[in-house]
């Protein structure tokens, strides 16, 4: 029906652009959909690929909301200070993990964020990071919602890795089919819907997922060159690895 060229098809396809529909959708339609078909938020981070070369230069987009009492200029300053105070230790730790290309800390709307690019398996990255820097990251995590339950990180490794995983943004795949596969896999259904996989038509599943997951990362991003590991780059540049 959605591809129908009839006036009704055209009307339906353009609905999402109508201001009255946007309003009705946000306040009535989507909440009703969400009630009828509850959607779980898809987990964050990249999915491991079966092609070894694809598991290089993966992105982590960690969004950690500050505790309510820290959502103020003073709270944000405390977060900035927690990073600054432990900067050398954190950077030395990242260096020793050996698989991290870049990592930076950003404050966005009462969230402290860590964006990084790393090689290999996500859990190994986080585990090695904690093993290397020990307590230095605890000062940051303590300021964040839910952080108390996972500090000290080095004594709560499994819980901490899970917590990071949950705060890492869901990465919407580049292709609609992969998105629907993610969604259906989460619901225990391995068959991909044969229809309604055109993301330009705003499928209901995407709308509901974006309701459950307000912040997401879109696609695998632009790359100027194929994936190389940190050590491959350092070796090529004769920096030692």
């Amino acid at each position: 029906m959605a591809n129908d060229e009839s006036w009704f098809g055209k009307f339906v396809n353009e609905l999402h652009e109508k201001p009255w529909f946007k309003c009705a959708g946000a306040w009535t339609l989507v909440p009703i959909w969400a009630r009828l078909t509850p959607v779980k938020p898809l987990p964050g981070g990249v999915r491991p690929s079966i092609q070894p070369g694809d598991n290089l230069q993966s992105m982590m987009n960690l969004i950690m909301p500050l505790k309510t009492e820290n959502r103020s200029p003073i709270g944000r300053a405390a977060a900035a200070l927690a990073i600054a105070k432990n900067r050398d230790q954190i950077f030395a730790g990242l260096d020793n993990v050996g698989t991290v290309h870049f990592a930076r800390f950003v404050i966005v709307n009462d969230n402290i964020c860590m964006f990084s690019v790393y090689d290999g398996d996500f859990t190994n990255y986080i585990r090695d990071f904690i093993a290397t820097i020990g307590s230095a990251f605890n000062d940051v995590v303590k300021l964040v919602e839910g952080g108390d339950a996972v500090t000290p990180c080095e004594e709560n490794v499994e819980a901490f890795i899970q917590w990071i995983h949950e705060h890492d943004l869901y990465q919407v795949p580049d292709t609609p089919t992969d998105f629907l596969r993610d969604q259906e896999y989460l619901e225990g259904d391995k068959a991909v819907s044969p229809v309604n996989d055109d993301l330009t038509l705003l499928p209901r599943k995407l709308v509901l997922q974006l309701r459950a997951n307000k912040n997401v990362s879109l696609g695998s991003g632009y790359r100027a060159y194929p994936g190389y590991s940190v050590a491959q780059v350092r070796k090529q540049l004769q920096l030692g690895w």
């Binding site: 491991p48 070894p52 598991n55 290089l56 859990t123 190994n124 585990r127």
Partner: peptide, 26 residues
């Protein structure tokens, strides 16, 4: 399992991440 068996299987056996000369090979 995560820090030993899976870490070895994923990063070392199937990616060769431990040494730049073998990275990308199984």
């Amino acid at each position: 399992l995560g820090a030993q068996f899976e870490a070895m299987s994923c990063d070392w056996l199937n990616l060769g991440l431990q040494d730049p000369r073998i990275t990308g090979s199984n």
